[in-house]
Amino acid sequence: MDFSYSEEQRQLADSLRRFIEERYPLETRRHANGFSRDAWRTYAEFGVLGLVIGAEYGGFDADATDTFAVQFEAGRALLPEPLIACAVMAAGLIQRHGTETQREAWLPPIAEGREIMTLAYQETCTRYDFARPSTLAQAHADGFQLDGEKVHVWHGETARSLIVSAWNASAQAVSLFVVPSTAAGVSMRPYPALDGARDAHVTLKAVRVPESAMIGDGTHGAAMLETALELGIAALCAASAGALERLIEMTAEYLNMRKQFGQPLARFQALRHRIADMAVQKELAVSMAHLAASAIDHPDAVERCRMISSAKLIVSQAARFVGEQAVQLHGGMGVTAELPVGDYFKALTAASLRLGDADHHADVLANLPAGASSRALTA
């Protein structure tokens, strides 16, 4: 399989890297508090926010390999903005499952950078199980009333709208609703996550939304969430692979600069072997990230699930190995704020936990026999 970039993908990746190097350096990103409005406008100008959105809604009809190219660069730079949560997961969910009216209402603002949307689906004590939400949606004459709590809402503080999962008693199924973060009854407790994102704990008390806020027909919310999570995992694997590449580059540069016994540390064979081991793990992560991207449009749900969970498992394991090695090879400097190695280690650790950790995806693979349906459809 050919994983090389097309000319358009290379141009987009190069443009994004030049912007990061010239106008959005690490120190600026560190002080962005999880979001930069200027950077977000630039992403919209580059077309990054509309990659998964159809051309008729202001997007570019891009495929998963285009998303890989962007997220790989975003991961290399540890871009703090909700590129995956909003421009991949939320936009991809609406593009694939929203009605025509919903696509026209929500996709153009996302592509133009005017709307920031994220998923609110995780709940207390459920870990990564999203198929049995305790949040309830009660039907009323003018729409629905939502009551419940959502935890670990990725970029919750930044989002202007939330895609909330709830048990719809009238449909006896999980339904998804677009809820403005400023709607009456929505309270948000933001907090900084390990990777610098501003996540949130969201409480919904008697939140009224119109029927038009429900995505699709309200009976396939779990399957819709599955789609969004698969898109997010593939993008997160690509971002992690990019971060791994940059972390190894920084570690090699440090070993060439730092001297011991009158010569650079890079001259010591044992340390060179450790860098080689890190490079092997990085290449494995890149290959699996490509596999996840290629799986997005796979027609078989079981095989798609197997490929994506395998990628997340292996990329998470590679992230832990490379991150730990990088910190150790930097010595005492590896745990200081002076060098960016700590930023990358924390970001990779957070990415390993988001959208299912290694143990979760190992369980998914162990419980996915041949001929089984996908996770969402069997839940």
Rank of each mutant, 00 (worst) to 15 (best):
I163S: 00
W167S: 01
L368Q: 07
S309R: 02
M278K: 05
V151A: 09
T42R: 13
R246K: 11
P109F: 09
V322H: 04
R41I: 08
E21I: 07
V151Q: 07
W167E: 09
L244H: 00
G59R: 00
A13N: 05
R17S: 11
E115H: 08
Y57K: 10
T251F: 06
A370W: 11
M307D: 08
S310M: 09
L365N: 02
I215N: 01
S316M: 05
A279K: 13
F3S: 11
R30I: 07
R304A: 08
A326R: 05
T158C: 06
A379E: 08
P264S: 12
T219H: 15
L291F: 00
A131K: 07
R30G: 06
A222H: 04
L377Y: 13
L83N: 05
D300K: 06
A139Y: 00
P192W: 05
A91D: 03
Q102R: 12
R274P: 00
I296D: 03
P369D: 03
R304D: 11
L225D: 02
Q317R: 14
V341S: 06
I296M: 11
R320I: 08
G331M: 10
V70C: 04
S187C: 07
D147E: 10
A131D: 12
A200N: 03
P264I: 15
G334S: 06
A90C: 09
S212P: 01
F130K: 04
A293S: 14
A90W: 04
A193L: 06
Y344Q: 08
E45K: 13
T219K: 15
G371K: 08
E249A: 10
S170A: 15
H201R: 14
A74Y: 02
Q11F: 09
L231K: 00
L271D: 01
A87H: 02
V164T: 05
V179S: 02
L79F: 12
Q102Y: 09
E226F: 05
V178N: 00
R198G: 00
A239S: 14
A87T: 09
L229V: 08
A44W: 05
G34R: 09
G185E: 03
A292E: 00
T203S: 15
M333N: 09
I275P: 01
W154K: 14
A184Y: 09
L348Y: 01
F321P: 00
K259W: 12
A362L: 14
E149I: 15
L236E: 09
I116L: 13
T349H: 14
I308D: 00
